[in-house]
Design a protein around this nucleic acid. Structure first.
Lengths: 143, 143
DNA sequence: CTATAAATATGACTTTGGTCATGTTTAATA
DNA sequence: TATTAAACATGACCAAAGTCATATTTATAG
C-alpha cells in the first residue's frame, strides 16, 4: 500500500510537526533515533521532501529540519506521492490498463471503494489535522 | 497493496475458473499467453497454489491445471495470503508494533476503515462469486 | 576570515521480490 | 514396457527498493 520510504517520510514529518518550530530545529541524527529510522536513509528522504518544500531546513551550525507554518498545511497525499510517485495508489488492483468503472475487472468493485476512500482521506487530511488529533488525545505518537 | 505475484495468482485462478474443468485442463504455456504472465514465473506460482490445494493439476500427457469444484469455493484472501503471507494486509500503515484501536497511531483511522473493508471483501468473496459476476456481465475478463 | 557544524549530493552496497533455465518425476498411450 | 508430455522442484540471475558511506556546500560564530 505504502512503501517503506513513504512510511518513514510520514513518521518524520509527524515528529517534526509535533516537536519542531522555526526556532527549534531538529538534527537528522536526533530525528533518526526518535523515530527509529536509519540516519543515512532518513537523510535522503528528508532531502527529497525538502526539495519539494514539504519540510524546511537550514544548513550550517544551528541548522536542522523543521516545519514552517506553510508546511503544516501540506496534505498527506503530497508526501506519499513525492516519495512513491502518484500512481501507486490509483492503479487497478490487477494492474490492468483497461479497467475502469464502465469496464471493470472482476476485482474492481471489491477494492475500489476501499481504495478511493483511503485516497480521499489522504487528500483531505493535512499534517496539521494529525497534530490536532494527537493534541486532543485521539491518537498517539510513539513512533 | 498486493504484490505482483498475488496479482498473477489471482489472474491465473480467474482464468482457470472461467475456462477450465476437470475434463478440460489448461497448459501453463497456454495460460501464460492468455493472461500475459511469463511462463516460468507463472509455473512457480501455480505450484505454490497447487501445494495448498487452491488449484488442481495432473502431470503427464493430457495433464494441466484446472479448478475442481472445491477450488471454486476458495476465498480470495486464501490466494493472497498463500502468496504474500498473511500480515501484508493487516499490519499498521506505519508498521508500528503497538498500534491498535485503543492506542491508535495518527494514521490508524485514516486507513483503518478502508483496509478492513477491503480485507473483509477478500475474506467474503469466493472464486465462484467472481465467475458469477463475469457471467452476469457485471465485470469483464480480458486479462 | 577561518573553523566548524550542519544539510545536501552522489554513488556504492545489500536485500528482496521477481524472472528465468535446467533437471526430475509422474502419468498416459502405444 | 518404452516413450513422451506434462507438472514439479531447485537454484541461478536480474532489477528495484532499501541502506549506507563519503565528499561537497552552506551558514554561523569566534
Amino acid at each position: 500500500m505504502l512503501s517503506n520510504s513513504s512510511k518513514y517520510a510520514l513518521k518524520a514529518v509527524l515528529y517534526l510537526a509535533v516537536n519542531s518550530t522555526e526556532n527549534h530545529k531538529i538534527l537528522v541524527k536526533t530525528l533518526s533515533s526518535r523515530i527509529n529510522v536509519p540516519k543515512a536513509y532518513l537523510s535522503k528522504i528528508l532531502q527529497e521532501l525538502s526539495k519539494h518544500n514539504l519540510v524546511s531546513s537550514t544548513k550550517g551550525p544551528k541548522g536542522g529540519f523543521y516545519l514552517a507554518e506553510e508546511n503544516r498545511e501540506v496534505r498527506l497525499v503530497q508526501i506519499v506521492n513525492t516519495i512513491d510517485g502518484d500512481n501507486r495508489l490509483t492503479s487497478c488492483l490487477l494492474s490492468l490498463n483497461q479497467c475502469n468503472a464502465d469496464y471493470p475487472c472482476p476485482l474492481h468493485d471489491l477494492a475500489g471503494k476501499a481504495k478511493s476512500n483511503f485516497l480521499k482521506n489522504l487528500e483531505e487530511t493535512t499534517v496539521q489535522d494529525l497534530v490536532f488529533d494527537i493534541a486532543s488525545g485521539k491518537s498517539f505518537l510513539p513512533l
